[in-house]
């Protein structure tokens, strides 16, 4: 890589962003670890006191007998008590059935949704790499889901999966009311939203394969399958690894779609890990426990990313 002469200027360029990221990500993560070893109890202290009633000009209001009238003022005071409880929150995770269920839901989701997106993406890319009627128009249509607001997509599919009167009602499938189907529905929505992304990336990668190589390969392999298995697939592998990593890291964070589509239900059938941590922290205000949960999620993501790390580094060489 050719570079400019090294001057101190390079730090002026780099540091603002580096410091920003350090402040806004490392600090919250350290703080989160601190929270996770605490039991945070927030109480509302409500007290009443009698205060004299004043009129607009600040003079006390008198009753019929001439005594100052009083009113009751309610004082609300939020008090948080932080107790250091060591790793109790982490131990709680081990036996919590909600956590088990959330891990199961997230795993099934990731293991079904991501491979489906990759396979469908490759198939569609192979299809669109042929001569087709209105190809660029159809390709543009396929792009629409990529940036569609995930929460809106969730609600949108709520109307589509609606069992009575929805457009798929004729199928008689309990898309949202049956626990197994509900998870499957969440997976379907994610497949709808993310297959186009995989498709687009794979199509770009396919179009990057040099023509001469394809021609030469065609001479040698007899079947289409041979062509795919021996030439196309190996050429696509680096791209597949990147897409797989990006999708895995993203899919584990699953939150918006079940929030909108199923509300985590029925029961806890579609409550993902992010969803559970969010609920625990910001609906039940068990901040310490929620932090412990999200830390575990963070560690799982880290493990996955590390597994891919070397591959990833290579692609930035």
């Amino acid at each position: 890589m050719k570079t400019h002469r090294n001057t101190k200027a390079r730090f002026v360029f780099l540091l603002p962003a580096a410091i920003w990221v350090l402040t806004f990500t490392i600090f919250p993560l350290v703080y989160s670890l601190y929270i996770s070893v605490h039991k945070v109890e927030t109480k509302m202290n409500v007290s009443r006191e009698k205060v004299p009633m004043l009129d607009a000009s600040g003079n006390p209001v008198l009753d019929a007998k001439g005594n100052p009238r009083t009113k009751i003022k309610i004082n609300r005071e939020k008090i948080s008590t932080w107790t250091n409880i060591g790793f109790t929150n982490f131990k709680r995770l081990v036996d919590d059935p909600q956590v088990h269920s959330a891990i199961k839901v997230t795993s099934i989701f990731v293991l079904v949704a991501v491979p489906s997106q990759l396979v469908l993406g490759i198939l569609l890319a192979l299809l669109f790499n042929q001569r087709l009627w209105a190809r660029s128009f159809l390709r543009a249509v396929m792009l629409l889901p990529i940036f569609a607001t995930p929460l809106a997509v969730g609600y949108l599919f709520f109307t589509i999966f609606y069992e009575e009167g929805g457009p798929l009602g004729f199928l008689g499938v309990p898309f949202l009311s049956n626990p197994d189907w509900a998870l499957f529905s969440v997976i379907l929505v994610d497949i709808w939203q993310w297959t186009p992304f995989c498709f687009l990336v794979f199509l770009a990668a396919l179009q990057g394969i040099p023509n001469e190589l394809m021609e030469a390969a065609k001479m040698e392999s007899k079947s289409k399958w041979g062509l795919f298995a021996n030439i196309i697939f190996p050429m696509l592998t680096p791209t597949i690894v990147i897409v797989l990593l990006l999708r895995l890291a993203e899919a584990i964070k699953l939150f918006d779609i079940p929030f909108a589509l199923t509300g985590g239900g029925p029961g806890v059938a579609t409550q993902s890990m992010s969803f559970l941590a969010f609920r625990t922290g910001l609906r039940y205000f068990d901040l310490g426990y929620a932090s412990a949960m999200s830390y575990c999620l963070l560690i799982i993501v880290m493990i996955i990313v590390t597994l891919f790390f070397r591959k990833l580094r290579q692609s930035y060489a």
Binding site: P28, L29, Y31, S32, M273, S274, F278, S291, L298, V301
Partner: peptide
């Protein structure tokens, strides 16, 4: 790749 939910509680506080 950081899961946003990991920083939700600290950012809230």
């Amino acid at each position: 790749v950081l899961p946003p939910v990991a920083t939700v509680v600290p950012f809230y506080l």
